[in-house]
Nucleic acid binder design. Structure first.
Lengths: 235, 235
DNA sequence: CGTAACTTTTGACCCTTGTTCAAAAAATGA
DNA sequence: TCATTTTTTGAACAAGGGTCAAAAGTTACG
């Protein structure tokens, strides 16, 4: 009897509908103005039903975060399949983050929420937590791999500890991406508004700085004159 | 008659007491678990009284953010008074951020809250908003100045646009600082826990990468071998 | 002092919003 | 068709932000 399987599928479908409703509302009004009553209305179910599928509001947002980190992880993994120098892979992973935030600000917002939850430590065991962590860890591991590749193919200075360098690139990229997010979602982000530059040029220069910082001596000249990645899709 | 002046002073004093109560509670239970009733209790006033001095919970946290940005701005300004190469000033400004977050996590938390509010755009004109923005802008300007100094004294590559470079350093530093904050305040921050390194070494390496990326050719050798800032106070 | 005018404090109350739960509706199985 | 199980529902509850009329405290002045 395939009845329980069908039910399982229907359950996932309903969850998905609810998540999409929440995502749309986050895009429209921001995560801070998200409320469960509206999510229920948008998903065309009752509030009680919503709570049958998600144990709390936190859990719901974590469900979005799970989708988000899964998507990002997939994108980052795709980068690693390419046959390029490690330092270019690092660049492309950074660009992947950047593209992600411009295309899915609501996902990025959910990921920030997740980070924030972990800080307060009151995350009451959502089923999504482990998956989010695994995805994030996975993306991070891709960064480590890219660095190791670069150290082996001679494009990245091997005097760094790969994981430590990955952590630095992770943190700095997230700083850049967060700035991009704020620029795209805030009426008046003071620091950028007085600068008539665009995000793509800013990111290019970020990569120039970092690229020069982590490259081997023989590669350094590449970063002084021209933009590293001319053919990169722009955001 | 100095009676209104005295009242003004008393009012500031009471505000300060309330802010301190809120800060303590943020340290104890996190900003997300802050509630006005408890703040009132801790400050030994009634809830109504609290609302006489702060128009909303947002306003209260923004009051803390105002203290935070003021403090940080002062520290950053002090750096600029020193007679050192620009690139060292840049490093020291970064170190100032880092020290700030380790010494005042609750202030840093309030600043994150402020950023978040600006995102949602529902910040209903708190009197502190302008001051916070001015302080932040001020710190940023210090970063620009440090870079300009470095470009003039030949320690920083003059091919960058100073403001754009400042923005990159700002964003990346905040990425690092945010990671440090999470490491210090989260039970299990996955990315750092498997790494037995400490924050000081991580920050040193961040500065090595960035330092190399922004230095002039003649300065670059400084960053390859030894740590840039041996005498820096550690966190 | 004493009393009137004004300021500050208070906490009970209101409102929004996350969450629960008993009853109703729907689905399943014999 | 009817008993049993599953799902849905929305009224009701709880927690916390915010309000306000009354009480307490201050100041001004005769």
């Amino acid at each position: 009897m395939g009845i329980s399987e069908r039910k399982e599928r229907e359950k996932e479908l309903k969850k998905s509908t609810m998540l999409k409703a929440a995502e749309a509302l986050i895009l429209e009004k921001g995560l801070d103005n998200l409320n469960m009553t509206e999510v229920a209305e948008r998903a065309e179910v009752s509030k009680g039903s919503l709570y049958q599928y998600f144990e709390s509001k936190k859990d719901l947002v974590l469900g979005i975060c799970d989708k988000a980190t899964t998507l990002l992880y997939e994108d980052v993994q795709k980068v690693l399949t390419q046959d390029k120098p490690g330092i270019e892979l690092v660049h492309m992973i950074g660009a992947t983050f950047m593209t992600f935030v411009t295309e899915h600000p609501e996902y990025f917002r959910a990921m920030k929420y997740h980070d924030n939850l972990k800080e307060t430590n009151d995350l009451g065991g959502s089923e999504y937590l482990d998956s989010c962590s695994a995805n994030t860890q996975g993306s991070f591991t891709c960064m480590v791999r890219a660095i190791q590749i670069g150290m082996q193919d001679g494009s990245i200075n091997p005097n760094y500890e790969p994981k430590e360098l990955a952590l630095i690139l992770w943190a700095t990229s997230h700083g850049m991406v967060n700035m991009a997010y704020r620029h795209l979602n805030t009426q008046h982000f003071n620091l950028l508004k007085e600068l008539e530059t665009n995000l793509a040029s800013l990111f290019d220069n970020f990569m120039k700085v970092v690229g020069c910082g982590i490259a081997t001596d023989s590669q350094k000249d590449n970063y002084d004159s021209q933009s590293f990645f001319e053919t990169n899709e722009k955001f």
